[in-house]
């Protein structure tokens, strides 16, 4: 059974694409045949984060419009042979996506035997974001510990509970997971950021994981390698936890408290 997972948030810049890339890579590393689709038509980024931007020939929109077949458009990851990327088109806009077209591509991917289809949603709640979530079985709601991000996620949760195929067909609901990104325990302690508990209380969905704010994320993005592959970075380890928990493993939450500052870093301002 193919599972469709949407990575969504409402707000832009919170880490959807970073999460999609690491999550899909993590699933593939655990032996799941996975494809990650960039729904951000016109502002394509996923290929950069996945490091396959120089191998894109055909894209998602080409497949929808019948200009290429699915196999031509799927880009296989260099390091994980059961990981594939379906890039967005940079020259089109979101109107190039149609519901029937998206549905057909997802069905064809299921027929190809994929275990997981990860849909990287664009920001906003318009067409692109709507179609990214519409066929989902589960959702990773990516949120920053900040009030406007939390409110936008709340809005998206409302849409997941009403504007999805599963709900409209009366087949239950989309399973929601909270991924709290860019978490900085030191700033939380100072009261400058919302805490995990604040966000959990407002959104009232189960917490899948907390990703600490980390320099490793930017470095990995620029290098075109999903941060989950960087075992030394705390963000990479946190994404590894996220994937493990998603697949049913029990792992305690980490990165919720600030690291003890050493004497040196105190002296030099850290």
């Amino acid at each position: 059974m193919t599972k469709i997972v949407v990575v969504t948030s409402g707000k832009g810049g919170v880490g959807k694409t970073t999460t999609s890339a690491s999550f899909a890579t993590g699933l593939a590393m655990r032996g799941k045949k996975t494809v990650v689709i960039d729904f951000d038509v016109g502002l394509r980024n996923l290929d950069l984060i996945m490091g396959c931007e120089r191998r894109v020939v055909f894209d998602f929109v080409n497949v929808i419009h019948g200009e290429a077949n699915l196999r031509q458009a799927l880009i296989r990851d260099k390091n994980h042979e059961n990981l594939h990327v379906l890039a967005a088109s940079q020259t089109r806009d979101k109107d190039a996506l149609t519901q029937d077209g998206v549905e057909k591509v997802l069905k064809d991917l299921a027929a190809e035997g994929f275990d997981y289809i990860v849909c990287d949603s664009p920001a906003g709640i318009e067409r692109g974001a709507h179609l990214a979530m519409y066929f989902a079985d589960e959702a990773l709601v990516v949120t920053n510990p900040e009030v406007s991000s939390v409110r936008d996620s709340d809005r998206v949760l409302g849409l997941l509970a009403s504007k999805t195929r599963k709900v409209e067909a009366g087949e239950g609901r989309v399973k929601e997971h909270l991924v709290l990104t860019r978490y900085n325990p030191a700033r939380v302690a100072k009261g400058e950021m919302l805490s995990v508990d604040d966000v959990k209380e407002i959104l009232a969905i189960p917490l899948l994981g907390v990703i600490p704010e980390s320099a490793g994320v930017l470095t990995s993005s620029n290098a075109g390698t999903p941060v989950i592959l960087d075992k030394t970075s705390d963000a990479g380890q946190a994404y590894d936890d996220v994937v493990a928990r998603f697949l049913g493993e029990e792992r305690p939450q980490r990165f919720l408290t600030a690291k003890k500052e050493g004497l040196l870093s105190k002296l030099f301002g850290g």
């Binding site: 809005r155 409302g158 509970a161």
Partner: peptide, 27 residues
């Protein structure tokens, strides 16, 4: 019984309305 999320609107016409889960900001 479900939470009412930001952007959602619920109207109980001609009756009372009971909400068992949170009503978020913007709802």
């Amino acid at each position: 019984t479900e939470p009412v999320r930001s952007g959602q609107q619920i109207y109980a016409e001609g009756s009372d309305l009971i909400l068992l889960a949170a009503v978020s900001a913007g709802a």
